[in-house]
Design a protein around this nucleic acid. Sequence first.
DNA 1: ATTGATGCAAAGGCTTTGCACCACA
DNA 2: TGTGGTGCAAAGCCTTTGCATCAAT
Lengths: 133, 133
Amino acid sequence: MLTGSKLRMTKQRQLILEELSKVTSHPTADDMYQVLRKKMPRISLGTVYRNLEILYENGIIQKLDVGGTQKRFDANIIPHYHIRCTICGRVADIHIEPHMELETEAKKVTDFDIIQHRVEFLGICPQCKKRQS
Amino acid sequence: MLTGSKLRMTKQRQLILEELSKVTSHPTADDMYQVLRKKMPRISLGTVYRNLEILYENGIIQKLDVGGTQKRFDANIIPHYHIRCTICGRVADIHIEPHMELETEAKKVTDFDIIQHRVEFLGICPQCKKRQS
DNA sequence: ATTGATGCAAAGGCTTTGCACCACA
DNA sequence: TGTGGTGCAAAGCCTTTGCATCAAT
């Protein structure tokens, strides 16, 4: 996993990766911290931020910028689309095929070099729907 | 414009709307502040934030959450896609037709109520391309 | 033993907010 | 003239960072 790099697999880093891999809820750094401290009470929020960033930089996890104020993290690094609840902020995966033709079309009308694209749906999650009615 | 509401059209609010309407650069609140203070030296950053938020809440301007740390604003309220330079953060419009079939497809695979979707392209802008080579 | 990682706390960057005064309607 | 808005400064929220110590290699 981290072979060949200067990275060490500390207990903290291992636990962070393990816990993130367990969920599909796209937790924020603080969400992670709250879960992690139950199993490792002395872990610090700074360590959580540092490790999520390092894992992201090494392509091991994904860092999501799906609107809202906080960044979110995902152990699933396969490109996929997301939906965010405009009421509670919850983020879920949308399992449809990436529309690569979006990039083809965009290339025709921009002088940017296109690297990738993101699609984010906005909506209301089942829980908030229930709460509203 | 603000008819029927309790909103007042102050000199500050008017100038903010006027300057935002002039550009297509999707400025941040601070970008706006830097431009505005040249014409109205005593305007405060707080006023800029407050007014951009109020104009957004009233559907007069758009507030963009296109990744990066700062929010951006756009006087063009017609839904459209954007591209962001991963190097300098610049944001530009992508003039292609919205792909409404994305929402149709997404509806089939989620239990969220879908309200809208956003597409963000990531790439490198012409200026940064030049600077790289 | 070397040096990357941790915990803690302080600092940073962006945004919001409390308050007394101001100026639209 | 009433009340929403402004300028200013302080506070808030999320994230990063400096530093002494710890621990993985």
